[in-house]
Amino acid sequence: MTADSTGHARDLTDTVVAVTGAGGAIGGAIARLVLEAGGRVVAGDVRAEALAGLRADWGEDRLALAVGDVRRESTADDLVATAVRSFGRLDSVVANAAVGFYGGVLDYSADEVSLMVDVNVKGTVWLARAAVRRFREQGGGGDLVIIGSVAGLLIGGGKEAVYAATKAAQINLGYALDRELRSELIRTTTIAPAGVNTPFAAADGRFGDRDPADGDFMEPGDIARAVGYTLTQPRRMRTELWTMWSMSEAH
């Protein structure tokens, strides 16, 4: 990674970024942006087949795959170990894996509630812990990026109470980690988008019979570019929380 002693934006060339949920629309867009910028990516997902497109397009020169369930602490440890084994280091992690079910508080099952809490909250905590261990071992800092949601700021929809609770937990985790870690040059950023045109957003039927790509919200690439900006900020600055909205949404 190019140093920023001159105060200029940092270069992603050869930087190593681990992304969870990389088989999804937003995670895949983040992984591709880093690769297109000359970086190296460890792409994690719970399903190997979800990562097949990335592998087909990018091969294995600057891309490593890590299949596992983020609900397990060992998955985060394996993701970090894959980065070190494949590329010799780890510079940034993006906690993107998420699950959401929409409806009233009694509309989803106990298993669905547990899944949201375990993936969105525990999955983020495990990744942060594994990354911080590595950053401290390497020295020189690092980046923790959490893909949250405006739902966690109580400005989402009206039928996502448990999902909103998990996203609020991510936002507060990000703030607390910033206070804990910034003296070590470990930056923590939470990016909190509103609606994005993805199958994830279509899960509540908001698009009706339309393709999610035809929605009036942001595109996955918009979120990826926010991650890219976050990672290329000079080390003298940090972004704690970034909310993102399409022009069609009000709050």
Rank of each mutant, 00 (worst) to 15 (best):
M1N: 07
D4V: 13
S5R: 12
T13W: 04
V17D: 08
V19D: 05
T20G: 09
G23C: 06
G24K: 02
A25W: 14
G27F: 11
A29C: 01
A31G: 05
A31C: 08
V34W: 00
L35H: 00
G39N: 07
G44E: 11
R47F: 00
R47W: 00
E49C: 00
E49G: 05
A52M: 00
G53H: 14
A56M: 03
D57P: 13
D57H: 15
A64E: 07
A64Q: 06
A66L: 08
G68W: 15
R71D: 14
T75K: 04
T75S: 14
A76R: 11
D77G: 04
D77S: 03
V80G: 01
A83L: 05
R85C: 10
R85D: 13
S86L: 02
L90Y: 08
S92A: 15
V93T: 12
A95R: 03
A98I: 10
A98V: 09
Y102C: 02
Y108S: 12
A110L: 01
A110E: 08
A110T: 02
E112I: 08
V113W: 12
V119E: 07
V121T: 11
V121Q: 12
V121N: 04
K122R: 11
K122E: 06
T124R: 00
T124L: 07
R129A: 09
V132P: 02
V132C: 02
F135G: 09
F135C: 09
E137L: 12
G139K: 08
G140I: 12
G140D: 12
G141S: 13
G141V: 15
I146C: 08
A151V: 01
I155D: 04
G157P: 13
A168C: 01
Q170I: 07
L173P: 11
G174T: 08
G174I: 07
R182K: 13
E184I: 06
L185F: 12
I186E: 00
A192P: 09
V196P: 00
T198N: 07
T198E: 09
D211I: 02
P212N: 04
P212W: 06
P212T: 03
A213D: 06
M218K: 12
P220L: 05
G221E: 06
I223V: 15
V227Y: 09
G228K: 10
Q233N: 15
P234D: 10
R235N: 06
R238Y: 12
T239H: 13
E249K: 15
E249S: 15
A250M: 13
